[in-house]
């Protein structure tokens, strides 16, 4: 039962990743691209968690946490760069 649900979830998150990637490519504004990247990071965390669940290990936890932190910082840095033309003033 869990295996079927796990497969469905993995396919859904991978599909979501592709949809976000389409938005990243077609833009049209830089705000949309930043948002698409942010969504892709969140989806990637979902994929990592599902991988850990499928293999029955807890070893990917640190990876997911690092991804979350790096994703947040890079989103803010991108947005700040577009807003101000500089990241640290």
């Amino acid at each position: 039962m869990i295996d079927i649900a796990l497969t469905i979830a993995l396919v859904a998150v991978a599909l979501a990743q592709v949809l976000a990637m389409v938005r990243l490519v077609i833009g049209p504004s830089s705000g949309d691209r930043i948002l698409a990247l942010d969504t892709m990071v969140v989806n990637a965390i979902g994929l990592i968690v599902l991988l850990g669940l499928a293999q029955g290990t807890n070893i990917y936890f640190e990876g997911a946490l690092l991804f979350a932190m790096l994703g947040f910082v890079s989103t803010v840095a991108y947005a700040r760069f577009v807003l101000r033309g500089d990241i640290i003033e």
Partner: peptide, 16 residues
Amino acid sequence: LLLGAMFTIVGSYGLL
């Protein structure tokens, strides 16, 4: 799992 899958795909579908 199913709820998470649904919400994730709705989020990206809405983005598009």
